[in-house]
Simulated scan of single mutants.
Amino acid sequence: MSAIKTPSAAVLLRPEELERYERGGGARTTPLVSPPIGARSFITGITEFDPGVAIPFHSHNCEESVVLLEGTAVMDIDGQEHPLKPLDTTFIPANVVHRFRNVSNDSKMKILWIYASPDATRTLQATGETRPVSAEHEQNR
């Protein structure tokens, strides 16, 4: 069973049993806490990056926190590179352009992300395209 609901409406999620979605370019996302299980004020998930993979520069319409769970990463923000080690945690205000990248040539990188809104969006800096974060979990099934 991938989600265990309790009588109080609490939910236990086991990421290894949940569906992962290919985001393309060597990144995969596993949604965790979301409106379908009862979340009303935030969403969370795990994204895994293959060696050398970077997501494009982007921003969100709400605050975001990212925790590096595994691997070797860099956060690019404000024109600076910030190396991350496991359990380093970031806070990114709404509408701030940033990206995360796996700087390893042979190991995967895994992050836990938390958005302060279930209606979080991602706007790509290069194109200006804005899509709901949840749309990434509906494509490439």
Rank of each mutant, 00 (worst) to 15 (best):
K5V: 06
T6V: 03
T6W: 15
P7R: 10
P7Q: 06
P7W: 06
A9Y: 01
A9G: 05
V11W: 11
L13D: 03
R14C: 02
E19A: 04
R20T: 15
R20S: 14
Y21F: 14
E22R: 10
G25Q: 13
G26W: 00
G26T: 03
R28M: 10
T29P: 03
T30S: 07
T30R: 09
P31V: 15
L32T: 04
V33F: 13
V33C: 13
S34T: 00
P35R: 02
P35E: 00
I37L: 15
G38T: 14
A39K: 08
F42S: 09
I43R: 05
I43M: 12
I46A: 02
T47P: 06
F49G: 02
D50E: 15
D50N: 09
G52N: 07
A54D: 05
A54I: 04
I55Y: 07
I55T: 07
P56K: 07
P56H: 07
F57Y: 14
F57W: 09
H58F: 08
H60T: 09
H60N: 15
H60M: 10
H60I: 08
C62W: 08
C62F: 13
C62S: 13
S65P: 13
V67E: 09
L68Q: 03
L68F: 03
G71I: 07
T72C: 06
T72H: 13
D76V: 09
G79T: 04
Q80I: 01
E81N: 10
P86G: 09
D88H: 10
T89H: 08
T90L: 12
P93G: 11
A94Q: 14
N95C: 01
N95F: 06
V96K: 08
V97E: 15
V97K: 05
R99H: 10
F100Y: 12
N102H: 12
N105K: 13
N105Y: 01
D106A: 06
S107R: 15
K108I: 00
M109C: 14
K110I: 12
K110H: 09
